[in-house]
Amino acid sequence: MSPDASFLKVLVNFLNKPKTAYPSQPLPAVRTDLKALPAGAPVIIWFGHSSYLVHHNGFNVLVDPVLSGHASPVPFMVKAFPGSNIYAVDDLPDIDLLIITHNHYDHLDQQTLRRLRSRVKTVYTALGVGRDLVKCGIPANLITEMDWWDADEVAPGVTLTATPARHFSGRGLRRGGSLWASFVLQLNGSRIYVGGDSGYDTHFKTIGEKYGPFDLALLETGQYNPSWPNIHMNPEEAVQAAVDLRAEVFLPVHWSKFALAYHPWYEPAERAVKAAAAQDVRITTPRIGEPVILGGDMPGQHWWENLKTFGNLK
């Protein structure tokens, strides 16, 4: 946290978020048949926050799935925005590769993983996270833990490399005990940056120099605050990270499903679009469930602009 912040102050503010932190009406998510995605170029389906599916010619990669409707130890806290949780585990295809970037509740959802465990072929995660996955019923022999800069050929034409991130880990009252990571996904000739959670630092430039350019970078853009400047990026920093990574397209994630910070719920996208224009960075802003096709359809509608009147749908 910043030097002038305190845990008590952060907790009080968390429990008393302004109405603007929540949308005033259900989000306009899109229902896509995830089991009948087109062949050809890779397709990305974002489920809100940091959960998404990457599909390429029958190979399915799932990242940090949180489909239970909440991102907390108990269901009544940190609930998903109305309209943002329209996908369930039953909607997913069988998963060839599951990536868990770290063990925070908004990235590792036990309820989702317990329902998904019989339909996953292999799981890759950061060092120490395996024990949390085993608690979800995922067999230990399916789990590969990675240190930063470790690389593995997951399948023919599919290579995964764990890369640094500036964040932390922990569940409940326990902090640390496991690593957090971003990942470089090389998928049959395409390069996708799986950002996980990270504050801004020089590691983005290093990753860009080693593995770039990227066809797409999925970077956290929301849940920032001056009280914790080093563990989450603000939108302008996320755009700069996309520049550092040498990403052809930037897709903002880590927003539009849960209110973990106090900023207006739509602000991450609004600021990211403005910053991307200033830096001449191509940005795609799909609705939840709306397909993004590499080299093809890149949704850019500012769909949040009609939802900026405020109520409170917590």
Rank of each mutant, 00 (worst) to 15 (best):
D96H: 02
L97P: 00
L97A: 05
L97K: 06
L98A: 12
L98V: 10
L98W: 02
I99W: 01
I99K: 00
I100Q: 03
I100T: 13
I100G: 09
T101V: 10
T101F: 06
T101Q: 01
T101L: 04
T101C: 13
H102C: 15
H102M: 10
N103A: 11
N103R: 12
H104V: 12
H104C: 13
Y105E: 12
Y105F: 13
D106L: 03
D106G: 12
D106Q: 09
L108S: 03
L108D: 11
L108W: 06
L108V: 07
L108H: 05
L108N: 10
D109M: 06
D109T: 05
Q110R: 12
Q110W: 03
Q111K: 12
Q111M: 07
Q111D: 12
Q111A: 15
T112G: 05
T112K: 01
L113R: 02
L113A: 09
L113M: 10
L113I: 11
L113F: 03
L113Q: 06
R114T: 08
R114Q: 12
R114P: 10
R115Q: 12
R115E: 13
R115I: 03
R115P: 00
L116V: 02
L116T: 06
R117W: 00
R117F: 00
R117G: 07
R117V: 10
S118W: 02
S118E: 15
S118V: 00
R119Y: 00
V120A: 03
V120E: 02
V120S: 03
K121E: 11
K121C: 01
T122E: 02
V123S: 04
V123L: 06
V123C: 08
Y124A: 10
A126Y: 04
A126R: 01
A126K: 04
L127A: 13
L127W: 14
L127V: 09
L127E: 11
L127H: 13
L127G: 10
V129G: 10
V129S: 11
G130N: 07
G130F: 04
G130V: 10
G130Q: 08
G130P: 10
R131K: 15
R131C: 08
R131S: 09
